[in-house]
Structure formats: C-alpha cells, structure tokens
Amino acid sequence: MEIKLNNQTQILQEKCSLQQLMDEFMPQKQKGIAIAVNQTVIPKANWQEHFLHSHDDVLIIRATQGG
C-alpha cells in the first residue's frame, strides 16, 4: 500500500493503523505529536483503531518549545 508521509511516498504493509505507523517510523518518543490524515487531525486515543488506506496523505507534526 502506498501512502504519503510528510510529503514523501512510503510503501506499507496492508492494513496498518496509525499506531503501527508511529511504532515503525518513530519508536522512541511519541509525546507532543499530532497526526493528520487527509487534512483531518486524528486524536491519539484513536491511533490504534484508525487504519490507513492506499493513497492517504499523512502529516506528522511535532510540538516544539520556544520563546
């Protein structure tokens, strides 16, 4: 299955949840992260049951501190 992840094409196994995607691409820290699929933010509580589809556009945003 082909998706876009932060504007780069990625090939994934069939039936991949957002949590599985995060475990594969960002296994270390997953705090302070927001994910949008096709321009809709998916709450972290739903990552486990939100499954990706071919050609989904996934945007991972990391919160930063600054001043």
Results as ranks from 00 to 15, higher is better:
Ala36Asn: 04
Glu14Gly: 00
His53Asp: 00
Val37Glu: 04
Val41Tyr: 09
Ala34Lys: 09
Asn7Gln: 13
Gln10Trp: 10
Gln19Tyr: 05
Ala45Gly: 03
Thr40Trp: 00
Ser17Ile: 13
Gln20Ile: 10
Phe51His: 11
His53Arg: 11
Phe25Pro: 02
Val41His: 04
Leu52Val: 12
Pro27Asp: 05
Asp56Gly: 02
Glu49Cys: 10
Ile33Gly: 06
Leu59Asp: 09
Gln10Asn: 07
Met22Trp: 12
Asn38Ala: 04
Gly32Thr: 06
Glu24Gly: 03
Glu2His: 10
Gln10Arg: 11
Gly67Cys: 11
Lys29Phe: 10
Leu18Phe: 02
Glu49Pro: 04
Ala34Arg: 10
Met1Pro: 03
Val58Leu: 02
Ile11Phe: 00
Leu21Val: 07
Leu21Ala: 05
Lys4Tyr: 11
Gln19Cys: 01
Glu14Ser: 08
Gln20Leu: 14
Asp23Gly: 08
Asn46Glu: 07
Ile60Arg: 07
Met1Ile: 03
Trp47Asn: 06
Leu12Met: 04
Phe25Ala: 05
Gly66Val: 07
Lys29Trp: 09
Asn6Trp: 06
Gln39Phe: 03
Ile11Tyr: 01
Gln10Leu: 12
Glu49Gln: 13
Gln28Met: 15
Gln48Arg: 08
Gln65Cys: 09
Met22Phe: 14
Ile42Phe: 02
Leu12Val: 12
Ser54Glu: 08
Ser54Gly: 05
Thr64Trp: 05
Gly67Thr: 12
Pro43Arg: 08
Ala36Met: 12
His55Ser: 02
Glu2Met: 04
Asn38Val: 02
His50Cys: 00
Gln39Tyr: 04
Thr9Lys: 13
Pro27Tyr: 14
Gln30Tyr: 06
Gln19Pro: 01
Val37Ile: 14
Ile61Arg: 02
Asn38Thr: 03
Ala34Phe: 12
Met1Asp: 02
Glu49Arg: 07
Ile42Arg: 01
Leu5Val: 09
Trp47Thr: 05
Lys44Val: 08
Thr9Trp: 03
Asn7Thr: 08
Gln65Lys: 14
Asn46Cys: 07
Trp47Glu: 07
His53Trp: 01
Thr40Arg: 03
Ile42Met: 01
Cys16Val: 15
Gly66Met: 07
Arg62Asp: 03
Gly66Asp: 13
Ile60Gly: 04
Gln19Val: 00
Val37Ala: 05
Leu18Val: 08
Lys31Arg: 12
Ala45Met: 11
Ala34Asn: 07
Val58Ala: 00
Glu2Phe: 02
Ile33Arg: 05
Gly66Glu: 08
Glu14Leu: 03
His53Gly: 02
Asn6Ile: 09
Cys16Phe: 12
Leu59Ala: 10
Arg62Ala: 06
Met22Pro: 05
